[in-house]
Nucleic acid binder design. Sequence first.
DNA 1: GAAATCATGTAACTAGTTACATGATTAT
DNA 2: ATAATCATGTAACTAGTTACATGATTTC
Lengths: 192, 192
Amino acid sequence: MKQPHIDAKATCLGALMLGEASGYEIRKRFESTFSHMLDIGYGSIYPALAALERAGLVDVVEVRQSGRPDKKVYSITEAGRKSFIETLLTCPARHKVRSEFGMVLFFADLLPRERIDAVLDQRMVELTELADITETWLASDESRAAPAGIRFAAEYGLELINANRRFIRNKRSELTEQLAAEAGTTEKRNIA
Amino acid sequence: MKQPHIDAKATCLGALMLGEASGYEIRKRFESTFSHMLDIGYGSIYPALAALERAGLVDVVEVRQSGRPDKKVYSITEAGRKSFIETLLTCPARHKVRSEFGMVLFFADLLPRERIDAVLDQRMVELTELADITETWLASDESRAAPAGIRFAAEYGLELINANRRFIRNKRSELTEQLAAEAGTTEKRNIA
DNA sequence: GAAATCATGTAACTAGTTACATGATTAT
DNA sequence: ATAATCATGTAACTAGTTACATGATTTC
């Protein structure tokens, strides 16, 4: 057997460790609780849940609903819990970033001022949303009852969000001033 | 035409914006300069360079070397530069994180103390290496001559690295104490 | 009346990773 | 001796994304 990574299946198991949920609800958990670490879409979730069921790592109950579509509520089994813990124990604990945002800033001198402003503004909006979600959770009763790791991860996430906001707030004017100054003196890179 | 993302091809073009390089040297740039935003391996780089050449976005010169393998030095063409700038202008400026590290911490209460320690120690090593590389670059002459965006991105990266290190340094003992306390009182999640 | 939410799923496509293949040279 | 560095490339595999398909209900 090879090194198990945290793929879509393990990711779903992780979400189900917090309690039973439908595919749709699992997605919601990745927009809030897990948003700073992982993200998956429906196109990954539904096939993953089907595979987990076949493997006996989750149970399903179909729930009739009036007024809205029926749903399938999944819950993790004992075998699923074991498998998930095994993954957490043996996976390489990597931290990967794929930041198109960072690349745009890196090459800021090649781009018009409006693009840089738009990109920084948009990022600030995203960061503020994330900060709100996390702060709300940390202030909730749910958070007080949660295991230490979950609180730690949330506080860690919030700290990084705030570091991002602080940096952008404090340094963006410096960046735009320098870009303006450079554009005046050396036109090399834009024209080259 | 659809929205161009920063894929392996655009990523290579970005690396070549800093000057001509071989596939091997491009990889090096992603271990230092671009390490906090993107990462790609040889398996992505070589096919991408071949495709870029076919598209006329890069030029190649084969260079004979004595004592080491010959290499192919790639340089970006005018068309390549235009294409890259177009990508930067129109790509969605996302910032994606995939953190198995974060997931392990999130579920820390399910894992033995040694795993948590190992994961945090390893992360500190990585962060320290990255900080060293970035600090060295920021103190160099190269950095003083670089466009504002590049310095901004480097300072931004360093700030975040330091926020990570600070958080881990200040809060890890709190985490391990709480985990120890919880393990004593409630054994629910481990045994369930 | 339009938009958002709730809800599941598939198929085609895109794209990245890992392992393999090869091999000289240099530093420890 | 052994590991690391320099150097390129392919093939098979893995896995995620996007678009499509459908549709009732609720909120604005």
